[in-house]
Design a protein around this nucleic acid. Structure first.
Lengths: 226, 226
DNA sequence: ATGAATTTGTGAAGAAGGTAACAGATTGCG
DNA sequence: CGCAATCTGTTACCTTCTTCACAAATTCAT
């Protein structure tokens, strides 16, 4: 394993770079500097250069980065040519919206099925994606080599569902429920907690009401920015 | 401003604590220790104690934390008794799902309206929330004292929409679009980038395939955990 | 060809966050 | 009551991430 040393935060930014480079490539731009990337992505240029430097010496002094080369490099690094199959569990409001979200077109991630326990939903399709009974989870997951689940069930059944999908061999969960899931250490969970995000945003606004004159307020705001 | 020193990460965890304390309160639990909270929320107990210590000396040695007291304290601190009005802009798949999500019941955050430019949607309701034309944005935002927007428009119009809502006096944006918005420094943006989250999760799984025997893999996994 | 302008990669410093470890306070058992 | 068990608050340290600042390489204009 060559690349163990890439910081977590850097790994999270790589898809961002990748996406923007695709855009640059599409409009025919040949070169780009860390300053330009910084402008577009609002990330400090030193941070950008540092991020790339973890992957190798990808730029050239006095020139910047070659868009095609960098794009290709990131494509390989992020394995953007492999399609990853995922499934979604919990076809409620949010689940349905995500089934329609079409991660696939742009990002080589394909939702092959949705799962739910509501008999009214089982057997239907959302945007061409079949909704199946949880009874068939393991079978379907194994058939499609699925290792990642998008979890959008109600909080009350989150843990039980997690147990079931982990038992079926799932290794990654994108958890939209507020529950903190208990899983074996080899299963990776990323949380997206919509309520908390909204609350935290509101918290900062309430605690630090901006007053146009105050330089302090602006600094603080900066310091706390995502 | 007394509480400028609360670390950003702590602020993000406070709603988590609050939510769990509500649960404990509901089942009649009177006291709780940082170890118990740690178990439930999967946050290191020292981190939890440190978080609370920013707010004051809320616990008692040899006893732990009084659930009612702590809950009340956090309620005040997080201003959970004030209702915050927000609006949602972009009533597509995701937007519709979020309108139905009902942040309100549990968290004193009320979506008072959705906005869109599609004539077919304008004038309809989603779960009792009216969908209005963007022409009326400023008027309605001012009427309801709205300072926060949930932004779920297509990426292509994200910046233009942001300009418009900022111009109308909005101070916080929960940005679900992949666009990195350019806004004045007094406007706070929190990003929720669904595609990137999924990609990052997949990246970690691909790069660090778990091999049951390898202690290193497990450590790394731990180190990279969200 | 020359020199000014650009721009990277990185060393060094600093900021932010996490956690081990423990003194001191309190509880609660016997 | 007395003593072991419990549990906080915090000090000290460690890790992770960010950013400044600059030498070195390259480009570009003239």
């Amino acid at each position: 394993m060559e690349d163990q040393k890439i910081p977590q935060v850097t790994a999270k930014r790589l898809p961002l770079y990748y996406r923007y480079l695709e855009k640059l490539h599409a409009i025919g731009k040949k070169r780009v500097s860390s300053a330009q990337l910084s402008e577009a992505l609002q990330i400090d240029p030193a941070t950008i250069r540092r991020d790339f430097s973890y992957l190798g010496e990808l730029g050239k002094k006095g020139y910047g980065y070659n868009v095609n080369y960098l794009l290709q490099f990131l494509r390989d690094f992020l394995r953007q040519d492999e399609v990853t199959n995922v499934v979604l569990v919990g076809v409620g409001n949010l689940g349905t919206a995500l089934l329609r979200y079409n991660f696939y077109r742009s990002h080589n991630t394909k939702i092959v099925a949705g799962f739910d326990n509501d008999p009214a939903k089982i057997g239907t399709e959302v945007d061409g994606i079949p909704v199946l009974s949880m009874d068939r989870f393991k079978e379907v997951a194994e058939l499609h080599n699925v290792e990642v689940v998008i979890l959008t069930v109600p909080a009350s059944v989150a843990q039980a569902t997690a147990d079931q999908i982990v038992e079926a061999g799932i290794r990654g969960i994108l958890n939209f429920t507020p529950a903190r899931l208990n899983v074996p250490p080899n299963v990776r969970i990323h949380h997206i907690d919509l309520t908390t995000e909204l609350q935290t945003l509101i918290y900062f606004l309430k605690k630090f009401p901006v007053d146009e004159e105050s330089e302090t307020a602006r600094e603080m705001d900066e310091a706390h920015k995502n």
